[in-house]
Amino acid sequence: MDATAIDHLNLRVPADGPEEAVEFYGDRLGFTIEGMDRYEADEKPFFDVRLAPAHVLHLWPTEEFEPPSGNGFNHVAILIDDEVATVERQLDEAGVTIENRHDSPLGATGRAPAVYVEDPFGYRIELKATIEE
């Protein structure tokens, strides 16, 4: 089996969380929100956060939502085509609190600076720079 990339990741969010999700992922982080019209029309049970041309987060609003705990889910790492200082500035301007910064965490593409934020539902998001400072 020859995998080439992760196509999507499913994250559950609270049933009343779509507006917060759009505000955080769309307005604050600047990702494109897709499929909201189909979700709102009950044509599909989730909507998407477009991370890159071939990569999305499927956000599944559900009444059974439970925030991630320290015993299971840890974080999603997203490669950002920029320097970490630029990412930090953009997050500050968007009012997003940086929980932590690591200068060289190891990931699939090697080591690079990264910052960690938390979404409104308790998911930890690693924003990993792809351009060295």
Rank of each mutant, 00 (worst) to 15 (best):
D16F: 01
F121W: 10
E133W: 06
T4D: 13
G110S: 11
P113I: 03
R111S: 15
F121A: 11
I6L: 15
D27N: 15
Y39M: 03
I125F: 02
P61K: 00
L79S: 15
R38K: 09
P53V: 09
I80A: 11
R50Q: 15
G122N: 10
G17T: 04
L127W: 11
Q90W: 07
G107Y: 05
V117T: 01
H75T: 02
E20T: 01
E40R: 14
I125E: 02
Y39F: 12
H8M: 03
G122P: 04
H58P: 03
W60K: 02
R28C: 10
D42F: 11
F73A: 12
N100L: 12
D119N: 02
D81H: 10
T109Y: 09
T4G: 11
F121C: 12
Y39K: 00
T86K: 11
P68C: 11
V87I: 15
G122H: 06
F24G: 04
I6G: 06
F24H: 02
Y123W: 04
D27S: 15
F47W: 01
E133C: 05
L127P: 12
R124P: 11
L79T: 14
I78F: 02
V87T: 14
D82N: 08
N71A: 13
E133Q: 10
Q90A: 14
M36Y: 01
E66H: 05
H102F: 13
E132W: 14
H55Q: 15
E34I: 01
